[in-house]
């Protein structure tokens, strides 16, 4: 049994990173040995989000890339997983889907850089989207393979027996049954893309500035207050998705 002080210590440890980042994002002038910044101000937020820097653009770019990846990867992997799940070589195909995870994403990017340069995809949003799809799509395939089970096949057959055509079965039977799984996969692939740094920075050659690339840039410039602010922006969507996951999905 965890005793109460231990429980509160754990809760404090979990919340500390979020409080620390938020505090730093409102801070200025944090010299050793001061425990807290000497100046508290909203200037960092005003400067970075009021159009005086390109952080707002990076935020929108990251959102666009991640929503795009989540939509395409979820949609494509949903159908691919069906073929794999009912295929006699199911296990072999699934092993192939694990390959991109065994290969470190940044090393994969390094080995593909030549092709991206030759095809004119390096430094382009399209190139980053394609590269992130190499990671997000196999995840979706692995995720949905469990969904396409004997029960789903029986439901499809029942729908066909009752006169439903392929489209009706898909719209009226499969999509409602897969709603929760589709949402979870969308969230997960969104996060895979949202958190991605190595592959994006290498194949984006610094021109596709997503939020993770921005955080690294601010850290490199030793601007810890802007780095903390960009980190807060980076953490907010996942926390929101977690809340939705817990509130909506696990209650229905």
């Amino acid at each position: 049994m965890l005793r109460k002080p231990l429980k509160y210590t754990f809760a404090a440890a979990v919340l500390f990173p979020f409080a620390f980042l938020l505090a730093l994002s409102f801070g200025q002038n944090w010299r050793f040995p001061a425990v807290l910044p000497a100046t508290w101000t909203t200037d960092n937020w005003h400067f970075l989000l009021a159009g005086q820097s390109d952080l707002g653009q990076s935020l929108l770019r990251s959102l666009g890339i991640s929503v795009g990846i989540a939509t395409v990867a979820t949609g494509l992997s949903f159908f691919t997983a069906k073929h794999i799940a009912y295929h006699p070589w199911r296990e072999r195909w699934l092993t192939v889907a694990y390959f991109p995870y065994v290969f470190a994403p940044v090393i994969l990017a390094a080995t593909l850089q030549f092709y991206f340069l030759r095809l004119g995809l390096a430094g382009k949003v399209g190139g980053v989207l394609l590269a992130q799809l190499f990671i997000a799509y196999p995840f979706g395939v692995i995720f949905f393979t469990g969904f396409w089970n004997e029960r789903m096949r029986a439901m499809e057959q029942l729908s066909a027996t009752l006169g439903g055509n392929g489209w009706q079965t898909f719209r009226r039977v499969l999509v409602p049954a897969a709603k929760g799984a589709l949402l979870v996969c969308f969230f997960q692939t969104f996060l895979i893309s949202w958190f991605e740094y190595g592959l994006t920075s290498l194949l984006g050659v610094g021109k596709v500035q997503t939020l993770t690339v921005k955080v690294f840039q601010y850290i490199g410039e030793a601007n810890i207050f802007y780095a903390a602010l960009a980190s807060v922006l980076l953490v907010l969507p996942p926390v929101g998705l977690l809340w939705v996951n817990k509130r909506v999905l696990f209650k229905t």
């Binding site: 958190f195 850290i219 980076l234 953490v235 926390v239 817990k246």
Partner: peptide
């Protein structure tokens, strides 16, 4: 705790590295 335990999973590796450094 069953809710809080999921919170650290929302931190990207880049942010965790920044936090540890700071």
């Amino acid at each position: 705790l069953s809710w809080l335990i999921y919170l650290p999973l929302t931190l990207p590796a880049m942010v965790v590295a920044f936090l540890v450094f700071q």
